[in-house]
Amino acid sequence: MKSLKIYLVTIVFSLSFVACAAPPRPPKPPKPPRHAAKPMPPGQAKKIYGTKSAKPFAPGQNK
């Protein structure tokens, strides 16, 4: 009789514990980047392409 009570208490406890479980949360969407991608500066483009002047890479600089 004592073991039957222990089994019943165990079953009731486990059922009450399982009933309190929350459903899984949906995944969060990815965060947008903090800063927008900026175009490469003319001087850096000049170094990469190996030219002597940065003028072709700076469209707003007309002299």
Rank of each mutant, 00 (worst) to 15 (best):
M40R: 05
V18L: 11
A36W: 14
C20S: 11
K52M: 08
Y7S: 15
A37W: 13
C20K: 13
M1W: 15
V12M: 05
N62C: 10
L8M: 10
A45E: 03
P23S: 06
F13M: 07
R34S: 15
P26A: 07
I11M: 06
M40Y: 05
K63V: 12
Y49N: 01
I6T: 14
P32S: 02
P23Q: 06
G50M: 00
Y7Q: 15
A36F: 14
K46I: 00
C20D: 13
A45T: 04
G50W: 00
H35Q: 14
K52Y: 09
P39E: 08
P56R: 01
H35R: 14
V12I: 07
K2Y: 14
P23C: 05
A21N: 09
K2D: 15
A37V: 14
A36V: 15
Q61E: 13
K52E: 10
P23G: 05
I48A: 01
K46R: 02
K55W: 13
K52D: 08
Q61W: 10
V9D: 12
P33G: 06
P59R: 01
G60H: 11
G60W: 13
K5M: 13
A45M: 05
K47P: 01
P29V: 04
P24K: 01
N62V: 09
K63G: 11
V18S: 09
I48E: 00
A36C: 15
A54Q: 10
G50R: 00
K63N: 14
P32W: 05
A36Q: 14
V18Q: 09
Y49P: 02
R25I: 10
P27D: 02
T51K: 04
R25T: 08
K28Q: 11
Q61P: 13
K52Q: 09
Q44P: 06
P42S: 02
I48F: 01
V12E: 05
Q61G: 12
I48T: 02
Y49W: 05
P56M: 01
K55Q: 13
P24A: 05
K28F: 09
T51H: 03
V18W: 12
C20F: 11
K46Y: 00
G60L: 12
V18P: 09
A45I: 04
F13W: 08
G43Y: 08
V18C: 09
P29C: 04
A19K: 04
L8T: 11
Q61R: 11
A37T: 13
P32G: 02
K52I: 07
V18N: 11
A21M: 09
T10Q: 11
F57N: 01
P42M: 02
T10H: 13
P30M: 00
L15V: 06
L4Y: 07
F17M: 09
P24D: 03
F13I: 07
V9G: 10
A36I: 13
N62M: 09
A37I: 13
P30L: 02
G50A: 00
P59K: 03
K28E: 12
V9Q: 10
Q44Y: 07
A54S: 10
P33Q: 07
Q44E: 07
K28C: 11
F17K: 08
S16G: 15
K2M: 15
P26S: 06
K38N: 12
P27M: 04
G50T: 00
Y7M: 14
A58R: 07
P42V: 01
A19R: 04
